[in-house]
Design a protein around this nucleic acid. Structure first.
Lengths: 164, 164
DNA sequence: GCAACTGGTTGTGAATCGCAATCGGTTGTG
DNA sequence: CACAACCGATTGCGATTCACAACCAGTTGC
């Protein structure tokens, strides 16, 4: 854990936090998959993350203040991982990443429907989603609109249609 | 060069292209530093990229269609690197990265002034900058407004003020 | 009591990373 | 024409990270 930074450039510093192949995947699953436990993140991983990598990334994300870890009262060994405000503010960035990926890379329909809705919804939708994330992860009052449910419903509709 | 992708998720695919500590640094320097030659990218690098990493990243970015390489007529061994349209469309993503980094990470004033202007300018400024990048890198007609010059002037003003 | 589940750790070999030194070819200068 | 500076890389090397599988001790439900 070295604290020496390569430069004070905001792009560089953001890369020093998120510039690897797994950190944002973990945040994405916490954010859009609503996976809050180690095993959920491990077993439902679309990309097949290894347990040591997941443990390492969760630790680093906690250290960097993007994720918090709390005990689950229902199970003495269970840990609940939550997004911090800092991570919730990544929503616009992730929306743009999804939009760019959808436009330029070979995405699949099922896995890009959420990105499409997020792109079409624009900043207004992002704000609503961030409010909901604050309710889910930070204990803020739950907003009336559930963007999460909308995204999930659209995803499952596509899956059902393609299965038929 | 393995073509097997971890998943068809747009976030994941974007990470497979840009998810390392150097690729976006190279793009940033091509984009905002207007460095077009190997030596410029190497010697003026704020973060001190190594020559083998730079060579590797340039090659990968060319393979992935983000950068094009052309011979420099003034020097038989010289190569000119240009951003493709695909890379130019990263401007909003990079602007958001800068905004997030500026808000949450220990940036320095000089190196974050461009990110600040880009954030304050919003999508209108991004579009103007992208038009200018198309002129510089793709040979499109040069627009009247030079966002690049505005960013550069602001940067140099901060540097001059802080040196005094 | 016991199997399933909890969040991890350990071991191993391969791949990648960062750094310094170096390469063969090209160009400008004296 | 000699020679140093410059050109885009390449090579060698040790350190870190990666992916994959096996394993762990404590907890829970049956």
């Amino acid at each position: 854990m070295s604290d020496d930074l390569r430069s004070g450039c905001p792009i560089n510093l953001t890369l020093e936090v998120l510039g690897d192949r797994w950190s944002l995947i973990v945040i994405r699953d916490l954010m859009f998959g609503n996976r809050r436990h180690f095993r959920e993140l491990l077993n439902h991983s679309e990309e097949g993350i290894a347990s040591n990598i997941l443990a390492d990334r969760l630790k680093k994300l906690v250290d960097k203040g993007l994720v918090t870890r709390a005990d689950d009262p229902s199970h003495k060994q269970k840990a609940i991982y939550s997004l911090s405000e800092k991570a919730i503010q990544l929503v616009p960035l992730i929306a743009h990443m999804g939009a760019w990926g959808r436009r330029h890379l070979p995405v699949t329909e099922e896995l890009s429907i959420r990105a499409q809705l997020l792109e079409e919804g624009g900043p207004a939708l992002w704000d609503a989603f961030m409010e909901e994330l604050r309710a889910i992860h930070l204990g803020a009052p739950r907003p009336a609109r559930s963007v999460f449910a909308e995204l999930q419903a659209a995803y499952q509709e596509i899956c059902a249609r393609n299965a038929a």
